[in-house]
Amino acid sequence: MTPTVVLMSVSVKLSQPEILRLVTGERHEPVIVGRVPKAYAAQVGALHTHVWLSRETLLKQLARHPDIPLATYENLDWVLSSSMIYGDRRAGRFHLVAPVERLGSQPKHFKVTIKNVRNSERLFLLSAHDLRSSSLRKLIAASEKIRPPR
């Protein structure tokens, strides 16, 4: 049984057929799945706040994390607007972590990794998956929390 994500006031930006078209190969160009706050985009040198998802990444994600419903990828604003944002040692990458409650299981966190690519033109989603408490502690220990400039 696929776990259900319980989210409050999430507005879906993409229609599911766009995500399905990526999966089936009818669509090859990336789709926008959300936005990060301007201050965080600026921290990694990005000119735009939109986060894009490529077909290749979506297929990789579905293979590695079949427990995450396809609909989760439609709108990631709920995690992209998270206040827990950590820098990666690799340039232009950062992790966004948000709490998530799934029916019938312990509360967890959901982690999205984003990279600034193409000379600051676009932010692309690299990965998205559930994060156990022990993995969250390791991420916090190995990363620096990004704070927006004032």
Rank of each mutant, 00 (worst) to 15 (best):
A71Q: 12
Y40A: 02
K145D: 00
K115W: 09
S54R: 15
K38C: 00
S134N: 03
S135Q: 15
G45K: 11
S134V: 10
A142H: 08
E29A: 14
M8D: 12
R137G: 01
A39C: 04
R150H: 07
V33T: 07
R147G: 12
V112I: 04
D67A: 05
H109F: 00
K111T: 01
G92I: 10
R118L: 14
N75A: 13
A41K: 01
R150G: 05
S82G: 07
Q106W: 02
H129I: 03
V23G: 07
I146G: 07
K115C: 02
E121S: 13
H48N: 10
R122H: 12
G34W: 01
W52Q: 13
S9L: 09
A91I: 11
P69N: 09
V31H: 09
S133A: 14
L14M: 09
Q43S: 14
E29L: 13
K138M: 06
E26C: 01
S54N: 05
K60M: 04
P99V: 06
R35Q: 10
V5I: 15
F94P: 04
P99Y: 03
Q43W: 02
L136M: 09
K115E: 15
L136T: 01
W78G: 08
K138N: 06
E18H: 10
G25Q: 10
R27K: 15
K38P: 15
G104Y: 09
R21K: 11
R147Q: 15
T2S: 14
S11T: 15
V10K: 07
A63Y: 05
H28F: 04
Q106I: 08
L76V: 02
L123N: 09
R132N: 05
N119L: 13
H129D: 04
Y73N: 04
